[in-house]
């Protein structure tokens, strides 16, 4: 649970954790939970068509656009959106790619139920949506049978920023947990619930929680968006 951290720093930290997991013989896993300063990432299922402005215009607004090697489409990360990165040794745990995908989706659905939100999985996809639209997104990757990246939950981000991209591939409005609940969703409750549900879903018994890492710097960033 790391607060608001730079996208590149958490990527480096994931690479490092992935190498450590690869070298060990146990089924020990690592889970990074954080928020990011504003940045757009486009996964393997994304396209330029999802971006409301050109790369140059985003650059002028001080918003970086990065094409990354995860599943899912274009996403705008910003404070108020929870990024959850479980690094799991899938082969040692006897899990396939679809088991991992289902595990993430089930954890999200259980978290929603605990928060009192009716949510469903869109058929033949990993998209989670509620009565107001889509608020959770899968964007994970597996390298050497170890998962990295993961999932993103719009808890209460600035929706003006979110409208800069069309993250939604199934005509569901892009929304947040706060909008769905019609009250401010508590980031700490969402964080606690998704972590607990992921831990249970993937069968872990013992957890150790750290709230900082020497390689990470908490950051603030201003972006300029035309109304």
């Amino acid at each position: 649970m790391l607060g608001c951290v730079d996208f590149d720093s958490i990527l480096t930290l994931q690479e490092r954790a992935l190498q450590e997991i690869r070298q060990q013989e146990t089924d020990q896993a690592t889970l990074f939970v954080c928020e990011h300063p504003p940045i757009i990432t486009v996964g393997r299922e994304g396209s330029h068509a999802q971006l409301a402005e050109s790369s140059q215009e985003f650059k002028a607004s001080q918003l970086d656009v990065r094409w990354v090697n995860r599943g899912g489409g274009a996403l705008l990360h910003a404070p108020g959106q929870l990024a959850v990165y479980p690094l799991l040794p899938l082969k040692r745990m006897g899990l396939g790619m679809d088991d991992f995908q289902n595990g993430l989706v089930q954890s999200l659905l259980r978290m929603c139920a605990e928060l009192g939100i009716e949510a469903e999985r869109f058929p033949d996809s990993a998209d989670i949506f509620g009565r107001c639209g889509q608020f959770a997104f899968l964007g994970a990757a597996i390298k050497s049978w170890i998962s990295y990246y993961g999932l993103y939950i719009n808890v209460s981000p600035d929706m003006k920023l979110q409208r800069l991209i069309d993250a939604n591939q199934h005509d569901h409005r892009l929304t947040s947990l706060s909008a769905t609940l019609t009250r401010e969703a508590s980031m700490s409750s969402v964080r606690e619930s998704i972590v607990r549900n992921l831990v249970q879903q993937f069968g872990y018994q013992q957890t150790h929680i750290f709230t900082r890492h020497p390689l990470l710097h908490r950051v603030k960033k201003k972006v300029y968006v035309h109304p």
């Binding site: 996964g43 393997r44 299922e45 090697n69 995860r70 599943g71 899912g72 790619m97 679809d98 991992f100 995908q101 993430l104 033949d124 996809s125 990993a126 998209d127 997104f137 899968l138 964007g139 994970a140 990757a141 597996i142 390298k143 050497s144």
Partner: peptide, 12 residues
């Protein structure tokens, strides 16, 4: 790289 919705897998 292989893909299912939301998840990629690197083949070595």
């Amino acid at each position: 790289e292989l893909l299912i919705p939301g998840v990629t897998f690197d083949v070595e």
